[in-house]
Computed example of a mutant assay.
Amino acid sequence: MAAIRFFAGAAEAAALETATFDAATIGDLRGQLSARYGAEFERILGRCSLLVNGTRATDDAVPLSGSDTVDVLPPFAGG
């Protein structure tokens, strides 16, 4: 199972900071996250970047394995 780490607004919407999921691809993971955490989380997820082992996953076909770590990062503002 892949380890999922939620940050900022994504952590608030999921009401936790970490979870594990058994997903074959990033697209599969997105679907599972939306189903588990609901419409508000899905809205936030649509704006998030997903990093697999530190590399941005820009395609839903990116494969996942049980040893992967996926970071769910909402947009950040900075100065």
Rank of each mutant, 00 (worst) to 15 (best):
D22K: 11
D28F: 04
A77Q: 11
G78D: 02
A8F: 08
L29W: 08
F76M: 15
L64A: 10
T20V: 12
G66N: 14
S49H: 12
T20M: 11
L29I: 05
T69E: 15
R47E: 13
A57F: 03
V70Q: 01
V72E: 02
D59F: 11
I26C: 03
A3K: 13
A24V: 11
N53K: 06
R56Q: 15
F76I: 15
S65H: 10
M1K: 07
I44P: 02
E12N: 10
A13Q: 05
S49D: 10
P75W: 10
V52H: 00
P74Q: 07
A14W: 00
A77G: 15
L29R: 04
T55Y: 07
R47H: 14
C48S: 09
T55I: 06
T58V: 10
F76V: 15
R43G: 14
F41H: 01
G27Q: 07
R43Y: 10
S67F: 05
A2N: 06
L29H: 07
A15V: 06
D60S: 14
R47Y: 13
S34T: 13
L45I: 07
T69F: 04
S49L: 14
F41Y: 12
I44S: 05
E17W: 12
A61E: 09
L33Y: 09
L64W: 01
G27M: 06
A14Y: 01
D60C: 13
D71V: 01
F76D: 11
L45W: 04
F7D: 06
A3S: 13
V70S: 01
S49M: 13
G78H: 02
L73H: 08
G66P: 11
G9E: 07
G9D: 05
V62T: 14
G66M: 08
S65V: 10
G54W: 02
F6Y: 15
A57L: 09
G31N: 12
D59R: 12
G54M: 05
L16Q: 14
D59Y: 08
A15D: 12
C48Q: 02
L51Q: 03
A8R: 05
F6W: 08
S65C: 11
R43D: 14
A15H: 13
V70G: 00
E42N: 15
